[in-house]
Simulated scan of single mutants.
Amino acid sequence: MIYLDYAATTPISDEALDVYTKVSKSFFGNANSLHDAGSDAFQLLETCREELANLLHGAKEGIYFTSGGSEANSLALSSLIDAHKEKGNHLITTATEHSSVDHFFKKMEGEGFDVTYLPVDDSGRLAVDDVEDAIRETTILASIHHANGEIGTVQPIEAIGNLLQENNILFHADCVQTFGKIPIDLRQFKLDSLSLSSHKIYGPKGVGAAYIDPKVKWQPQIPHTTHESGFRPGTVNVPGIAAFVTSAKAVCDAIMKEGERITELRAKLMASLPSMITVEGDETHFLPHILGLRIANVEGQYTMLECNRHGVAISTGSACQVGKQEPSRTIKALGRTDAEAKQFIRLSFGKQVTMEDIDQTAAVFREVLGAYFGEGVRV
């Protein structure tokens, strides 16, 4: 099987798995316990916290480990909004956020908040002027993803951060797809909070992190919670966190070299695709490991199933949306029709993908589409 669904999840690295096993055996104490076994686990946890913060150019006191990116999004957003709701009831986000963020803001609307969903252009890019126009005196917070997980379009985070800081508005970014793929600098981006996930960067599933600037106040969502400074309840997953940070350091160390390799893979595949395939996303501001495609008159579900039958694993978009009948919100936001949105497929690349895999994938597309249209297809 040629696996091209790394944006959904990645295989755990040997290094991360080895760390997980060793820490499970040697640091099994509860990090909140006062005996030596607990103290050893606590010290390892704090080392992990500091190392992850350094990768983000942030402070270790701002790192809160979670069960993943979705929980990091919801807890960071709710903790910040609750602590600052005396300012007003207006929130800003985009029409193309991850489902965890979109669902959160729908919930906030049900609780009486006024939410502005900013549009994007036909490449998925947000205009900074639209952010500025949306700001009100009652605006508490804006949540804008660093890059889209379906088409890979990267947003002008630094310019948005400067604008929001000037207007004293909290800024959260979902960085799950970008961490370890492109550099993230909390200071440069003027971010008050962000979310990360382990299983997108060759770490174990069920682990993630939120960052909240230590200078920014936040409110615990469950009173009297003791773990993670009150950010979330439950015994802390020290082995998972150690494996997560191990993976994070490895991908960040190789970020430039791997980025260049993935960019070459992406370009080779794009040059080999049949002519009826349209690339969705921004041509300049994009994540190299995500390639969103649309095939005219062919539903994405059919393409995905046929590719799977030929030994190539791709997706029809975000794994968190699988099973839903509605077309992709992201593709609809680009101005596509329902029928066009249902034609969408996503290929995403990672460490194990080779040039030979790309050649085989292009051949599979030509075979699948040739059989569908009953004739040869042009590149």
Rank of each mutant, 00 (worst) to 15 (best):
H199T: 11
D359S: 10
I314T: 02
K351G: 11
I135Q: 00
K342Y: 13
G203Q: 14
S229P: 06
V251P: 06
A16F: 01
K332M: 09
G292K: 00
P11Y: 06
G292Q: 00
I331E: 05
A59V: 10
I151G: 10
E260R: 06
E340L: 12
A362I: 02
H145Y: 15
L369G: 02
I151L: 09
S79V: 06
F65N: 04
I169V: 04
D129P: 09
P239N: 11
K60V: 05
R125I: 05
G208W: 11
Y117T: 07
Q360P: 11
V245C: 14
I255H: 03
P119H: 07
S100A: 11
F189T: 12
H172Y: 07
L126E: 01
N168Q: 10
H310F: 12
E158V: 07
N297H: 13
A242H: 13
I140L: 08
H224E: 15
A37W: 00
S315M: 03
N167F: 04
G234Y: 03
R49F: 10
L163H: 05
E50W: 07
E150S: 10
G208K: 07
S275D: 15
I2A: 01
P233A: 05
Q221C: 11
N168H: 08
S197L: 06
H103Y: 05
N32R: 13
S70T: 09
E109M: 09
Q301M: 12
G112K: 14
S195H: 00
T235H: 10
Q321D: 11
P156E: 05
Q352R: 06
E111T: 13
S275M: 11
L52I: 12
Q343P: 14
R329P: 15
P11N: 04
A142D: 13
I12Y: 05
